[in-house]
Design a protein around this nucleic acid. Sequence first.
RNA 1: GCGCCCUUAGCUCAGUUGGAUAGAGCGUCGGACUACGAAUCCGAAGGCCAGAGGUUCAAAUCCUCUAGGGCGCGCCA
Length: 622
Amino acid sequence: MASSTPTPERADPPLARRCGRGYDRAPMRQHVVDIVRRALARGAAEGRWPALATPFTVDPPRDPRHGDFAVNAAMVLAKPAGRPPRELAQGIIEAIQAEDGGRSIASLEIAGPGFVNLKLRPEVWLAALPEVVRQGAAFGRSEVGKGKRVNVEFVSANPTGPMHVGHGRGAVTGDVVASLLDWSGHAVTREYYVNDHGAQVQTLARSVHLRYQELLGRTVTMPPKSYPGDYVIEIARSILVELGPRFLDAPEAEWLDLFRERAVAHVLAMIRSDLAAIRISFDVWTSERKLYDSGTVQRFLAELEAKDLVYWGKLPPPKSKKGQPVPAAGAPNEEGIGEAEDLLLFRSSLHGDEVDRPVKKSDGTPTYFCADIAYHWDKRQRADQLVDVLGADHGGYVARLEAALEALGASRHDLHVVLIQMVNLTRGGEAVKMSKRSGNVVSLQEVVDEVGCDATRFIFLTRRADAQLDFDIELAKRQTLDNPVFYVQYGHARLARILEKAAEADAPEARFDAETLAVLTAPEEMDLVKRILSFPDLVAGAALAWEPHRVAFWLQETIGAFHSYYTQGKRTGERFIGADPVKTAARLALARSLKQVLANGLAILGVSAPERMESRDLAEDV
RNA sequence: GCGCCCUUAGCUCAGUUGGAUAGAGCGUCGGACUACGAAUCCGAAGGCCAGAGGUUCAAAUCCUCUAGGGCGCGCCA
């Protein structure tokens, strides 16, 4: 585990949090942060500049020529000190040098408006490399989330049909967010909320009954709002086979519950199977129905009343859509409910919501929202931080959930919602027709069957969650450069083959001692070493920003750097396994470290890291 | 009409929570294989970061407005 990582001492936590970004404890960077912090404190104590009021940053600059880290302390201090930043920078450099005593820093210089560019001695970087292989599959884990319980709710697709591609994106995103949080030391629960209570599952049950009648020879027409899919026929058939035709003309009350239970169980089994195909499983499945059966919702409502958070009243009239007339007062809406009647309203507008939201309908039954806040409140008791991964069409729902948490005494920040934008499925650039009406929504299963689990998962992660994603089936199957999955996996396989080849060729073994690694002097080699060592930083950052796509991009960049280095070696004749046994041993150490870090990155994404690629079969292409 | 999200190279997108001369891939053009995987790489061309103001040492990033695109908007879940 990561516990043996040389953890830099953390003198004073509040100060430590102010300096740097707080979340970042990558050993090398933290080392620099510590030195700079001590240097600044000493300078302040000596009256050379004021004590730091705002945080400074230590960041790897975009341009590697600017050094390993850029420190902005002089610019931050310029105003309070009343002196030009470049002048301050000179003093800061001297203080840093005094602090370090030449042990770890190779160079310091003033640049641009007042940055202090800092370069560590190569041996400092190289000395950290053995840790990568020593920690192996745990390299990259951190404890930034130590002791924090996080509940990640995702998918939560209604149990009325198989998962489609859009669900798949949310599923993979949620799964990897959970994985990242796990890697950064949080105690993670993956949770699925099953909406098995409302009108939609009733509709499903009725659809099954219609198909049931059909199987018994009746001619039926599926109403517009029903579920016509083939799986509905399957469910009907299984009921017919097992229980016979006795429900054909029975009143609804006699079969509705039974049909619903059967249907939901069947669909949930389908969903579990869809999820298994993309390597996703959940720790907890929470049934909305059981929240009622166990009295959780009722108790929750009582609590709301006790806290005076609800009242009986009328909802303000809706904002009309452009071009549409505002319904006359008292006119019934689509559900035939007039607006004159009172409902039980939750005071969400006190906490940032636009209006108060109903928790009980005018007929006295609880709304969906009611059960959902009860559910979130319940989750909040079980975890310190909640994450919901929702489709973007639920964006309007976030404010009321946050309001609910806040009203109940938690913080609105205890919930973070990751909104997933829609997926445009294409095939060779042509949009794939998705018609909900015909039940022809392309199922996740079909896509996974065609392109494979690895490609499906990876492609879902090649875009920020809140941006729309084009998913091209042909591209995902293609074994070429424009397919990022292939590119990254090939890089891992290539490293595996090099190490394999070295063993066969009786080449020297990888060696991690300082003397051997010291021959890794090429800029490309040091660049790779630094990239490898930045991995824990990347993972922690992606976790705390809930941004799994960062890992996918990092993998592509890192493997690209390796391919470039490798091919360059081929061109110059500086072969990976070369005549020089020391260089060979050092390069193999680099290869092992890089292979490990790629494997770990892919593990976070839930994508396999193959030891070799299957041979390309072009004959398959028509 | 109101709210939220988006707008970066011809195309698809990154941009390290405000840092230095804005980066990749694809596409285009031109190059590199007696080889440990050329399933790769190198180079060139390509930009008013949608537009206008503001905040400060510093803005693609934060605030306001405008123009386009997406989503949502009464006791459906």
